[in-house]
């Protein structure tokens, strides 16, 4: 047991040193990279390793008779979580989410240190000491708190009330609810039931299972499925339409949405927010094809009231593309990102 805990503790210490090194720039921040496609689980796994490491350290310290005070364990663990979220995860997490995570981790630390009576006593003892112990050190601490706390609260109040010239916080509705139907080039499409006319099998019938087999495969990067190259001259049916959609995309869309469809096109950073990233699982992968059809056809100007603050400069493409071209470009977007359009059956 002791050997196992020693190994675990060693991993914890190494991880901690690495994190500190990355924060101060001693160790390059990409030494242990967050790998695209694996990042969510990687973050959780790293946290699990740290927790195991700290448990190992605590075990070893206890067995050597140099127990680290529970109060400082709790405080430092919370500080560690905040540090990890702030410095390890890139791009930076917006404050609102860090505040949520900070509160939850605070509650978690409280639950841990107060889970049983003995631990709770150990944890609160230093706090009680500051409040009523009669040693010189604690009296000095109390005096310091008496001066510092009002200053901190006053400072915080001042900073909160100080007029700011920053742009206000926005709660943007990324996916506003679509209308029941939309009229494009004189034809009405019911969003719940319409289908992409080019998502067809070799017999020309609508077949999502068939097209699903031919989309780009996701893994460590995105690769074309075997024998599913739309730019093959012999490509017919669905793959041919994907190619045509791709041509339309590169003639019209890639300037903003990027040649990797990740929202980082040539002009992308002229806009705020930058254009939608189709490779993110939270965009087209969550939506029906008809939703995309409606958004492409009507553009930012066609967003409903719910889409406030309408922060989209996408043109209403129905003014520039035919209906068929819009369907084909959507086909290409799903093919290229390796996502399936949402269906409800």
């Amino acid at each position: 047991m002791k050997a196992l805990m020693s190994v675990v503790a060693l991993i914890g210490v190494l991880g901690l040193l690495m994190l500190i090194g990355m924060i101060f720039g001693v160790i390059p921040s990409n030494t242990v990279r967050l790998v695209e496609g694996y990042m969510p689980m990687q973050v959780l796994s790293e946290l699990a390793i740290f927790v195991a490491g700290f448990a190992g350290l605590s075990y070893l310290a206890n067995s050597m008779g140099i127990a680290f005070p529970r109060f400082w364990q709790g405080v430092l663990f919370w500080v560690f979580i905040q540090t990890y979220l702030k410095f390890r995860i890139y791009p930076p997490i917006p404050f609102s989410v860090r505040a949520m995570y900070g509160t939850v981790s605070f509650v978690a630390v409280f639950m841990w240190v107060s889970a049983n009576e003995e631990d709770w006593k150990k944890f609160r003892q230093p706090i009680l000491n500051v409040l009523d112990a009669n040693t010189g050190f604690h009296k000095a601490l109390r005096t310091m708190y008496l001066i510092l706390l009002p200053l901190l609260i006053g400072g915080f109040s001042f900073m909160t009330m100080k007029p700011s010239v920053d742009e206000p916080i926005e709660l943007r509705t990324v996916h506003p609810a679509p209308p029941a139907s939309t009229k494009v080039h004189g034809k009405t499409y019911t969003l719940q039931t319409s289908q992409n006319p080019y998502r067809v099998n070799l017999e020309g019938k609508y077949d999502q299972d068939y097209s699903n087999k031919l989309i780009v495969e996701q893994g460590m990067g995105r690769l074309m499925a075997p024998n599913a190259n739309p730019w093959d001259e012999k490509a017919e049916g669905y793959l041919k339409y994907v190619r045509e959609g791709g041509e339309i995309f590169f003639q019209n869309c890639h300037f903003c949405h990027g040649d990797n469809l990740n929202g980082r096109g040539l002009h992308a950073f002229a806009f705020n927010p930058i254009p939608a990233n189709f490779t993110d699982p939270g965009t087209i992968a969550q939506l029906q094809e008809t939703f995309i059809f409606w958004r492409v056809a009507k553009g930012g100007i066609g967003l409903p009231n719910e889409g406030f603050p309408w922060a989209s400069v996408m043109p209403p493409w129905e003014q520039h593309l035919t209906t068929d071209e819009i369907w084909k470009v959507i086909l290409f977007e799903y093919w290229h990102t390796g996502y399936y359009p949402r269906t409800w059956d």
């Binding site: 969510p40 930076p92 997490i93 917006p94 930058i274 990233n277 993110d280 699982p281």
Partner: peptide
Amino acid sequence: MGGQQHPVLGN
């Protein structure tokens, strides 16, 4: 953040 979706938290 470079876009509406965060590459880690978005997931």
